[in-house]
């Protein structure tokens, strides 16, 4: 139904999966407004590429892959934007504005996520927040399973050493 570009069926899928996609992107970007904008873009990309979903694997896994790709595209554009701002000397003003806006909403998870690289953050969120298997994460991020395992290990080590957490203290 959806593969034939049925808007009603697709609307149902959006309603069903919006929470997971928005939560994933909120954790990944640590910016709720940006995350919701990216979520809209993600669903629009999903609508345009729905014919590429072959039915293998879970639909949410495929949707999270689209969301991660949308995030990476936006990040590339944003990096280019910051490069241009740096060239004209406005980058510091923008960064200060962003920190002051976000500082009110920082929680423990934000602190943990802040020590991780973008790649580590994405893999950790996909694993522990979205509940994807290592293989599904590999499909979503186009990385081999071995790399996923080592990224998760590295991410956990970073959190452990940075916040001096012992195994039993997680959570």
């Amino acid at each position: 139904m959806v593969a034939k570009q049925d808007t009603k069926a697709f609307g149902e899928l959006v309603r069903r999966h919006q929470s997971q996609i928005r939560n994933f992107l909120r954790k990944l970007t640590r910016d709720n407004v940006l995350a919701d904008d990216l979520s809209q873009d993600c669903f629009l990309h999903a609508w345009n590429k729905i014919h590429t979903y072959a039915g293998r694997g879970s639909f949410i896994g495929w949707l999270l892959k689209v969301a991660y790709t949308t995030f990476l595209q936006s990040k590339r554009k944003s990096n280019r934007y910051h490069e241009i701002l740096e060239e004209i000397g406005h980058a510091e003003d923008i960064n200060e504005e962003r920190v002051s806006r976000d500082s009110d909403e920082i929680n423990d998870l934000d602190k943990f996520l802040a020590v991780l690289s973008t790649e580590e953050r994405a893999v950790m969120i996909l694993s522990y927040a979205c509940g994807l298997s290592h293989r599904e994460i590999g499909d979503a991020t186009d990385m081999p399973i071995g790399t996923i395992k080592s990224i998760i290990f590295r991410g956990k080590e970073k959190i452990r050493t940075k916040f001096e957490i012992k195994d039993h203290q997680y959570g």
Binding site: R22, N23, M124, H168, Y170
Partner: peptide, 15 residues
């Protein structure tokens, strides 16, 4: 072994 703790930490309410 840390999975349940990490999952609890990463868990968030449905939006």
């Amino acid at each position: 072994k840390q999975a349940p703790g990490l999952e609890a930490m990463f868990r968030s309410d449905p939006l």
